[in-house]
């Protein structure tokens, strides 16, 4: 489905330059009213419907919950690529890609770290992902 439009997934930035150490990090959000945490940032809290979502910078390291090496991936991304769910210490789970030459190195629950890469570009030349995680 190469005609799929990919609008901005969030109207707030989810990949930021951390002024403290000048390196990028991911940013989710936290509800100022009930504490619900969401990634990527959203405008309304899915728990209490409050609209006071505040930026929540995320750790750079998370745990690899599960992963798969796609030989044949989603048509609008192409392939092959390694997809994964990463569990972050802040309590949110992130779907992303893994940057590793040999997927045989990966195991469930291993620590992985944020790596800002050359954007993953699909067959239409569109950027689909600006970051990955790596062991």
């Amino acid at each position: 489905m190469s005609d799929v439009e990919i609008p901005p997934l969030s109207d707030q930035p989810y990949l930021i330059d951390d002024p403290e150490d000048d390196r990028p990090r991911l940013q989710g959000c936290e509800c100022a009213d009930c504490g619900k945490r969401v990634f990527p940032p959203v405008a309304v809290c899915p728990e209490c419907l409050g609209e006071n979502m505040e930026p929540l910078p995320l750790s750079r390291e998370g745990l690899l919950y599960s992963y798969t090496a796609f030989e044949q991936g989603a048509r609008w991304v192409g392939g092959p690529y390694i997809a994964a769910y990463i569990d972050m210490p802040e309590g949110v789970r992130i779907f992303t890609h893994i940057d590793v030459d040999d997927p045989g190195r990966l195991t469930c629950d291993m620590p992985v770290i944020l790596r800002v890469t050359e954007p993953v570009v699909n067959a239409d030349g569109r950027e689909v992902l600006k970051f990955k995680f790596a062991p």
Binding site: I6, F70, A74, R75, A83, Y85
Partner: peptide, 17 residues
């Protein structure tokens, strides 16, 4: 979905876990 989670990959990740 936008970042490439086709259904067979979702089940592949379930299978892995």
């Amino acid at each position: 979905m936008a970042y490439g989670l086709a259904m067979h990959g979702l089940y592949a990740m379930r299978a892995r876990r």
